[in-house]
């Protein structure tokens, strides 16, 4: 179920990659050939990039593609690996990412409340939608991490895989 959410997050997120390519190309052509630079391309591209990273975070976690320094890890048995992942998630992932999620919610609410804008350009787009997306991305990452945590724990205790 959570895997599906992460897959969905990936499915949605991937369109931002296409968007990024199209906007970047459009801006170049429009500025160079038509002398008509846009005021929205710069911020749109930054936000599309952010959407890729944040929506990709849970998808990448599901695919176990977050880089590990696996000098020792790769030599461990599956059970030891599960043990490392359970302890690692409890120590390195949940405390930090729960706090980051909580902060991202606080700042998203603040952005909606004060009508925060981005001022990299004089387009001044509202910051709230992106701040919200940022929080959603972290929430999905936490869900995915919780699902993997449950599976690893089950495997550790029962020595058989869940599902």
């Amino acid at each position: 179920m959570i895997d599906r959410l992460s897959a969905l997050s990936g499915a949605v997120g991937k369109w931002f990659a296409v968007l990024l390519v199209l906007v970047g190309t459009f801006e170049t052509v429009s500025r160079h050939f038509f002398n008509a630079p846009t005021i929205w391309a710069y911020d749109s591209m930054c936000m599309a990039g952010g959407a890729i990273y944040l929506l990709g975070a849970s998808y990448t976690y599901m695919k176990d593609s977050h880089t590990r320094v696996d000098l020792l890890y790769s030599r461990c048995s599956d059970r030891t690996k599960a043990l490392i992942d359970v302890i690692g998630a409890a120590v390195f992932l949940f405390p930090l990412m729960i706090v980051m999620f909580q902060m991202s919610v606080t700042w998203a609410i603040r952005a909606w409340r004060i009508n925060e804008v981005m001022f990299n350009s004089f387009w001044y787009p509202p910051a709230a939608p992106y701040r919200t997306l940022f929080a959603i991305g972290l929430f999905l990452l936490l869900l995915q991490a919780a699902a993997k945590f449950a599976r690893d724990l089950y495997f550790l205790v029962r020595n058989e895989t869940l599902d």
Binding site: N35, P37, N120, S121, F122
Partner: peptide
């Protein structure tokens, strides 16, 4: 008019109204 110029802030918007092609670059 048509000058490809990097302008930030409100000045950028004002130059755009004056016909400059204002570009946003860090």
């Amino acid at each position: 008019k048509g000058l490809k110029a990097r302008c930030m802030g409100d000045g950028g918007e004002i130059f755009k109204r004056l016909g400059a092609a204002t570009v946003i670059i860090p």
